[in-house]
Design a protein around this nucleic acid. Structure first.
Lengths: 356, 356
DNA sequence: ATGAAAGCGCTAACAG
DNA sequence: CTGTTAGCGCTTTCAT
């Protein structure tokens, strides 16, 4: 019963027309033929059903079903100049704090017929340019940046390409295009105030060394200092800085190092939950009771942070929300919907649990 | 100095030819014009540099550089029927045990000019069909399955599409197409023997309920039983089964539940490191010393498993290797290279650390 | 509401 | 080694 894909078997076309024969599966032409309409009508039935009569719609749908037709989005994208592809750029996928965002971005996009392409920059600049080349080559309808485009050249290239851009996980006053994030400075201030309110007076930090962390740390340190929370003998808030990506081991070594210098430390602000969890493990080894002897606060609110004992106090960022807003921004832009703003501060919240 | 993209300004073409004007950036034609060659020659210079004279190569490269030309892969893919796109299907990205594989797959593909498209099935069957539609629609050069294609319909659809398929994380005797993985049965047997060799005699399991885990558990239970390792009062190896995805909390509740029934248990085999880590945390709360009172062995070898105290003994699967092999398989197939085999068992290894 | 024609940007197929 | 021509499968434009 299968209507075979048919280069009309009759030799009624000049032989030269068959210089290049199609080999893949069914095409829209097959559907159209089967439904007894022109290809463009079949196209309309699939893309703008309202623009076609119910009878035709029905017949086209039936034809599609019958042969199992799946539209070729490469062809569609080429013709319409809308690839329905969105690229997201993250440092690395393993152990990433951006996965929640990626997940919801994927979902949001999928719901509107868009797909996500994931690009990893790694932690060296070298790959950014190559990555950008491949991204632009696919002509995506948008790019979501997690803010780790360090190569100025790549950045400029991207901007020049004219592809809509969403920057995330930060609030800058000079966005390239669209923006959804939160203020790292504000977070530093609030965490310091939070620890102060809990009675902590000798604080320290363990942190990655990326640009945002540095701004966050600065705000934290200044606030803490102003509140008189530096440990005895320290003129600054002590910090243990590790290169990204951070891990539990950073927390373990960090705690050891800090305690060796400032035995009186009574609270540590960590730049990720993983680091905070590492601090907890090392505190266990050292026999330091948490939260009595030492308070710990993380950043990111991993699932497992809730499952530790005691459960970890942390700063929560709603990655899911970032992802869905970023997705909406791009879709709205692609479909030329009128939109109030393309900048959004989603804030953060301190989730207090057992470690403070 | 910028050579503007030029619809020849003279009105020397019939108006009708301009029915559809290009709007995007530069095209290969612009490059060719600038280099003084035919478009196809420019194409060759970029894709098969060896097929072109050094002089032409140089001129084309210069032209590309000058205008910042980036090839349109939608057009290229459409014309050549090779999209250079590969799809990977995983349950979900957050908390996935497949990320290491995805990472290395991405890398392997990128090195050969291919890109990865990530598809998530979620933990309900419902989305699989829709996901497949979008995957096929992009005409990828291959699909990597992590073995969670439950919908028979989707599976059949995929097979019929003719897209090369790599199944991973398992060894079946009846692969659809290509295969790279390891034997879950063998793992069950070896873990039981390992615990036996360490002197454990009252074992239990905490496990997810997916099909592979079930096969693994069966092998573990049979071997353990044969070796006389069921706890007193049990005729079977006790197990605590939780729905996927597993997490630390599964381990915590699992341990409580098992100990309540069989207080003498002296070793637990967990279906993931996260579960094992949860067991460790709960053991700490219950005051059960690890490994003296209770041995724990996980599966997956997460980074953090090494950083716990004591460090976790676990079964390591080389996800990086799975990814690179799967990538190679697809690339070799796409480029029609002669290949010995498209099936590979990469095995696993038990990494003994402090919990056994 | 439907269709014909043209073309998106690129590469396969065949010359020369 | 280089060029001409046709066409990948779809959608835009314009006409009916």
């Amino acid at each position: 019963m299968t209507e075979k894909k048919s280069p009309p078997p009759a030799a009624d076309l000049p032989a030269v027309r068959r210089a290049r024969r199609s080999k893949g599966g069914y095409t829209l032409r097959d559907v159209a033929k089967l439904a007894g309409v022109a290809p463009i009508t079949a196209s309309r039935a699939l893309n703008t059903p309202s623009a076609v009569s119910p009878a035709v719609l029905e017949r086209v749908r039936e034809a599609v079903e019958r042969i199992g037709y799946v539209p070729n989005m490469l062809a569609g994208g080429l013709a319409s100049k809308r690839s329905r592809l969105v690229a997201a750029v993250i440092p690395t996928i393993t152990g990433s704090i951006f996965l929640e965002m990626v997940q919801s971005l994927t979902q949001t996009l999928a719901d509107s017929g868009y797909q996500l392409m994931l690009g990893q920059t790694g932690y060296e600049n070298s790959r950014e340019d190559a990555l950008l080349e491949t991204i632009i080559g696919r002509r995506p309808d948008g790019v979501v940046l997690t803010g780790i485009m360090r190569s100025g050249h790549a950045r400029k290239r991207l901007i020049n390409s004219g592809i809509p851009i969403v920057e995330t996980w930060d609030m800058t006053s000079t966005p390239i295009d669209m923006l959804v994030g939160f203020s790292h400075e504000k977070m530093g201030v609030e965490v310091a105030q939070f620890l102060h309110a809990r009675g902590r007076r000798r604080v320290a930090m363990i942190s990655a060394n990326d640009e945002r962390a540095i701004r966050r740390n600065k705000a934290f340190a200044e606030t803490a200092l102003a509140l008189g929370m530096a440990p005895p003998g320290a003129t600054e808030v002590p910090s243990f800085i590790v290169p990204a990506p951070t891990s539990m081991i950073s927390g373990r070594t960090g705690l050891r190092s800090l305690i060796a210098q400032y035995p009186d430390i009574d609270a540590i602000f960590c730049s990720s939950d993983l680091v905070a969890l590492g601090v907890m493990i090392e505190a266990g080894v050292l026999g330091m009771a948490i939260p009595d002897r030492l308070a710990v606060i993380g950043l990111g609110d991993l699932d497992m942070s809730r499952d530790f004992h005691p459960a970890l106090t942390t700063v929560r960022i709603d990655g899911t929300r970032i992802g869905s807003i970023a997705g909406r921004f791009i879709i709205d832009r692609a479909e030329e919907r009128p939109v109030e703003t393309y900048v959004q501060d989603i804030g953060f919240s301190i989730v207090e649990r057992g470690t403070t």
